[in-house]
Structure formats: C-alpha cells, structure tokens
Computed example of a mutant assay.
Amino acid sequence: MFRNAGLRRLPRSVDVRIPRRTFLSRRAEMPSSRPVENLNIHELSKRSHDYQRNRRIFLWSGTVAGVVSFVYTAYKLQQELTKPAQLDSSLPSSDPLSGTNAAERKVVVRDEEGRELVETGNTTVPTFPRTISIPPPPASTDAPAATLATGPTEYTLVGLGLRSVTFVGIQVYVVGYYIATADIAALQNALTKKINPIATTLVPGERDQLRSALLDPVAGEQAWDELLAQGIPARSAFRVIPVRDTDFHHLRDGFVRAIQAKAPTLGGQRADDEAFGEAMRQFRAIFNRGSVPKRKELLLVRDEKGRLNVEYDDGTSKKKGGSGARQLIGTVDDERVSRALWLNWLAGKKVASEPARQSIVAGIIEFVERPVGTVAAQVV
C-alpha cells in the first residue's frame, strides 16, 4: 500500500536516529559573535625581552662608535699639530739652524729692527729670536771685580718645539734651547770625540750614529747627564713662552715633577740628600707668584757653575715706554736641580716636548757636521 503513496523505502543498513534533548543533555556550544583575544603571557614577555635587548645593543653600538670616532679624530688632529712644518729655509747650508733636509729646516725672517727670528709654527707665539742677549746676574759681594764689568752674553738658538699635554694635544708653551755662542765649540768637540776620538768633524755615517745615541732613551740621557755634570755646555738657557694664560704654580708643578723624575738617575745615584731637598724648597719658593699671561717670557738660565737663574719679563716696562727687561726672580745654587730640569727636555724615555727634543738633536747634528769652532765664528 506504500507503493502508491510514492514513499521510498530506506535500506535496512541505515540507522536513522533523531536525537532527543533531555534535561540532562549538554547544550551544543554555538560559536559566539563577539571577538575573543587569546593572550599568551609568556610569548609577550619573550617579545618584550628581545626588543629591550636589541635596543640596548643598538644604543651601546652607537656609543662605542661615537667614542672610537672621537678618539681617532683627536689622534689625527694631534698628528697634524705635532707634524714638523715643511718649510723652505732662507739660511745657507753652513748655518747651524739650517737642516739637512726640508723637514728639519727652520725659516728665518727679519723684523722691522732687522733682528733674525725663527718661525715656530704656532699662531700664538709665531717666532723665536735666533739669538738673545742675557746679562749676568747681580754679582755677590765676594765676587771678583772682573765679574762686575762683564757685559751681556749672546746665546744662539739650537732647537725649539711645542709642549702639549693630554691625548688631545692641548698646547701649553713653546720652548727653545739656547747655548752661549762662545760655548758651542766645547759642545762640538765633546760630541765629536764621543763618536770618533781622532776626528774634528763627523761624516754622514757618524752623524747618524750620534743622532741615534742622542735619541735613545738610555744612551741619550746618560750622554747629556755626563756632559752637563762636566759643565758642557758651560752656559745654556731654556726660553719658555706660554701659548695660553697660566700661572707660576702650574708651571712649578710641572717642573717639580720633571725634576723628581730625573733625580734618581743623576750621576748614577739618587739625589735625595738634605742639600738637594733644601734646593728644591728654594726652587718652589721662586714660583710662589701669580699668573703668567700668554706670550710672556720665562727664562731658565744655567751658568758655568750649574747655578739656575730664573728670569721673567712681564712686559710692564714696554707698556710704560721702555724697551722691556727681564727681572731675576730667583736663584738655585745646587747644579743638580738645573741638570735634572735640563734632562726633562733633552733626553729620556719621556720628555716634556718631543718636537723640541727632535729639533734640538737636529741642531746638534748641524754643529758636529762642521769643524770645531767654525759655528761660533759664523754666528758671531
């Protein structure tokens, strides 16, 4: 009877069940239309940690790169400031201030009064006089009468250079080494005999040997120590001109440190006796003064007995219409003080001004290149 009704019989293998819902059955979970955020705390913490780490690395990399760039720029600037000027010389090759090559030559110009000036390469203190005259210090009451009649002594410039401090090369002063013109022959003879005992002048190979010895930290200091102890040269001076405003206390501290550094090596024995201590107290007392403006002259003079005379020209006499004159501000009798101070510029592992040491050695080599006595004759 179902055939006429049009109904299709289902296979018996198909089990059709209609689910029924009771009060115990679970309600089907329907998807919600509201957005749901699945937060992963550990993942967020890891991402934050990675971000902060990368940020720190980036900042430290920038800091290191900046410091390296600053140090490199300062180093290159110092090299340019200390590089010897490539200047042509107006002096003949026989002159003690003319170098054997362009790097060692010094330009000599003349001022309005006809005085010869050597260019320093510094804009604040552009020139140094080629020769200076230094009158003798006031004689003591027990000095012989001949000493009172002695006139000024002429000194000849051997070499000069700039004193710089710190790794960025802060310029402090220009210093020049002068030797009494009449005493150059004794220095020529002593250095020549040191290399070749039978020679009166040195050939190129011997001059190179002397240059190496004077620039050697140990051999150079020993050579100058012996020469100064013997009074060779008998009279010499260091002329110090600040390139920036300073004071006597600042200069004193630098000089005292230099003397104390050289004192243990003087004559192969340490200078620490009571007499040397008293001499150092006298030296400090000389510099118990005020300011030293730039371009003012401080002259340190060592006489034939090794006595140190400190002279200063503040320029006040020029302002009042005078010609300018140095004033003796103090004296130290112990020759070890001046010898240690001289070694601070002339020799050692570390000198106050390497350009000055190089220039002085170049001037010394020019001396020994010619026969003994001829340099003084040409300068005079």
Score class of each variant (00 low, 15 high):
residue 1 M to E: 13
residue 1 M to H: 10
residue 2 F to H: 11
residue 5 A to H: 12
residue 10 L to F: 08
residue 15 D to V: 14
residue 17 R to D: 08
residue 20 R to S: 14
residue 22 T to S: 15
residue 25 S to G: 09
residue 29 E to N: 14
residue 29 E to V: 15
residue 30 M to C: 10
residue 30 M to E: 15
residue 30 M to Q: 15
residue 36 V to G: 07
residue 49 H to F: 14
residue 52 Q to Y: 15
residue 53 R to L: 13
residue 55 R to W: 09
residue 55 R to V: 07
residue 56 R to E: 04
residue 57 I to N: 09
residue 62 G to Y: 02
residue 66 G to P: 06
residue 67 V to W: 11
residue 68 V to R: 09
residue 68 V to M: 13
residue 76 K to Q: 12
residue 78 Q to S: 13
residue 80 E to V: 05
residue 84 P to H: 07
residue 85 A to K: 13
residue 85 A to C: 02
residue 89 S to R: 00
residue 94 S to R: 10
residue 96 P to W: 00
residue 101 N to Q: 11
residue 103 A to N: 07
residue 104 E to L: 10
residue 106 K to N: 11
residue 108 V to S: 06
residue 108 V to C: 03
residue 109 V to Y: 10
residue 112 E to G: 12
residue 117 L to T: 07
residue 117 L to H: 00
residue 122 N to M: 11
residue 122 N to H: 05
residue 125 V to I: 10
residue 130 R to M: 12
residue 132 I to R: 10
residue 132 I to V: 14
residue 133 S to V: 08
residue 134 I to Q: 07
residue 138 P to K: 06
residue 138 P to G: 05
residue 141 T to S: 15
residue 141 T to K: 14
residue 143 A to V: 03
residue 144 P to K: 01
residue 149 A to Y: 12
residue 149 A to E: 14
residue 150 T to I: 09
residue 151 G to Y: 06
residue 153 T to F: 03
residue 153 T to W: 03
residue 154 E to R: 11
residue 157 L to M: 00
residue 158 V to C: 08
residue 163 R to T: 06
residue 165 V to W: 09
residue 167 F to W: 14
residue 170 I to M: 10
residue 170 I to Q: 12
residue 175 V to K: 06
residue 178 Y to P: 00
residue 185 A to I: 01
residue 186 A to R: 08
residue 193 K to N: 09
residue 193 K to D: 10
residue 199 A to W: 08
residue 201 T to W: 05
residue 203 V to S: 14
residue 204 P to T: 08
residue 205 G to L: 12
residue 207 R to P: 06
residue 208 D to Q: 11
residue 209 Q to L: 06
residue 210 L to A: 00
residue 211 R to M: 07
residue 214 L to F: 02
residue 216 D to M: 04
residue 229 A to H: 05
residue 229 A to I: 02
residue 231 G to C: 05
residue 233 P to M: 05
residue 235 R to P: 02
residue 238 F to E: 00
residue 238 F to T: 01
residue 240 V to Q: 04
residue 240 V to D: 04
residue 241 I to S: 06
residue 243 V to L: 01
residue 252 R to S: 09
residue 260 Q to K: 12
residue 264 P to K: 03
residue 264 P to Q: 08
residue 264 P to L: 02
residue 266 L to Q: 08
residue 269 Q to H: 14
residue 276 F to W: 00
residue 280 M to F: 07
residue 283 F to S: 06
residue 284 R to E: 14
residue 290 G to V: 04
residue 291 S to G: 01
residue 299 L to V: 09
residue 299 L to Q: 04
residue 302 R to C: 04
residue 302 R to M: 03
residue 303 D to E: 02
residue 306 G to K: 05
residue 309 N to E: 08
residue 311 E to L: 15
residue 313 D to H: 01
residue 314 D to C: 05
residue 314 D to E: 09
residue 316 T to N: 04
residue 323 S to K: 15
residue 324 G to A: 08
residue 326 R to N: 09
residue 330 G to D: 02
residue 332 V to D: 07
residue 334 D to N: 12
residue 337 V to Q: 01
residue 342 W to N: 12
residue 343 L to E: 04
residue 343 L to Q: 02
residue 352 A to P: 03
residue 353 S to E: 00
residue 357 R to M: 10
residue 357 R to I: 02
residue 359 S to V: 03
residue 363 G to V: 04
residue 364 I to F: 07
residue 368 V to Y: 02
residue 369 E to R: 15
residue 376 A to C: 03
residue 379 V to P: 01
